[in-house]
């Protein structure tokens, strides 16, 4: 660990994680639409125009070249499926599918091949592929470019799913995902990309273990569980609650599949109350899964039913006045906690 304070943005931390894996392992490649940009125009002086839609892969093509940083045509089925095949045949691809809603285009490759090949081939093929997808409603991108959709991935056996909530977890989980021999999906919230975390991020290539949650604030009165963006919401709600004399514990889920049942259940058992905050649609969601977990395995400890605060069962609207109502707000979470406690 460096002693000096070394703050990175969410995007810079992801970029650093990817870069360290590419330096470490020559079989690691990156693929996706405009992961560099201006493809084929380097001789004209144009290179790396985007570095990914959110600049997460910026600067990689200069260091690793066009054979390891591949701009693709807009053909999600083709390049996500090619990532699966490349993984089966010895590479370690990171495939950027851009907005998570584009799963609608390439779902076959992810659900029928990536999730299943290891199992249905009797464990004889390994698929060390990482998919990264951007999530969340972040200001007027409307119904198809603002979704979160954790649950449809987590639904599939064979996929691991992680959600960083700040720069530190973003780098650590990115490296862990890319080192993992199973397929891993990393969800990256666009709502976290502009946040000034001022958080120290170590320079070394550290990993956060997949399947582990962390307690970002300890407390005794109620457990708040956040996922990605909503971990920040939970922290802010906990600050509100502190002003009113309540001591909330905040669990940052980090891993959707597998779930860290031990951390979650021990927190709930201690505080005896839980509010789960998820910006994904509510039905058949990760929030529902966590609620079921609490009800099934911590029932005897609970003083009140588990409470979910989620997006509504409605697509994401364009206009800002409605979009802001779609996301679980700090006030809604605070109110839900007070309701549960009283």
């Amino acid at each position: 660990m460096n002693k000096e304070h070394r703050p990175l943005t969410f995007v810079q931390a992801i970029n650093e994680g990817i870069r360290s894996r590419m330096r470490e392992d020559d079989s690691t490649i990156v693929m996706g639409i405009d992961v560099a940009g201006a493809a084929g125009k380097a001789e004209e002086g144009f290179i790396d125009h985007f570095g990914g839609t959110f600049a997460m892969t910026k600067g990689l093509i200069q260091e690793f070249g066009t054979s390891r940083v591949l701009d693709t045509p807009i053909s999600e089925t083709g390049f996500v499926g090619a990532g699966v095949g490349a993984a089966a045949a010895g590479l370690r691809p990171l495939v950027d599918m851009m907005f998570v809603g584009f799963i609608g285009v390439c779902g076959d490759q992810i659900f029928n091949n990536m999730a299943k090949m290891h199992y249905m081939f009797g464990g004889k093929v390994k698929l060390p592929i990482t998919i990264q997808a951007q999530t969340a409603a972040s200001g007027g991108n409307a119904a198809q470019h603002s979704e979160t959709l954790y649950s449809i991935f987590a639904h599939f056996p064979g996929l691991k799913c992680v959600v960083p909530s700040d720069p530190y977890s973003a780098k650590g989980l990115q490296i862990a995902a890319m080192k993992d021999d199973d397929p891993v999906v990393v969800f990256q919230s666009t709502r976290l990309m502009g946040v000034n975390f001022n958080q120290h991020v170590p320079e070394d290539a550290y990993e956060l273990p997949i399947g582990k949650s962390r307690i970002v604030k300890t407390g005794n009165d109620i457990t708040l569980i956040g996922i990605g963006t909503t971990t920040r919401t939970c922290i802010q709600a906990a600050e509100n609650l502190a002003k009113q004399g309540y001591d909330a514990e905040v669990v940052d889920l980090l891993s959707i599949s597998p779930l860290d049942e031990e951390t979650i259940l021990s927190s709930i058992s201690k505080t005896r109350k839980v509010v789960i905050v998820d910006e994904d649609y509510p039905k058949c969601s990760v929030a529902s899964e966590l609620s079921a977990l609490a009800a099934e395995k911590a029932f005897d400890f609970l003083d009140a039913p588990p409470k979910r605060v989620t997006a509504p069962h409605a697509s994401i609207p364009y206009t800002s006045v409605l979009e802001q109502l779609h996301f679980p707000s700090v006030d809604n979470v605070t109110y839900a906690c007070l309701e549960v406690m009283n």
Partner: peptide
Amino acid sequence: YAESTPFEYAV
């Protein structure tokens, strides 16, 4: 251009 990806490269 598809975003910044030239037709000559992608098609």
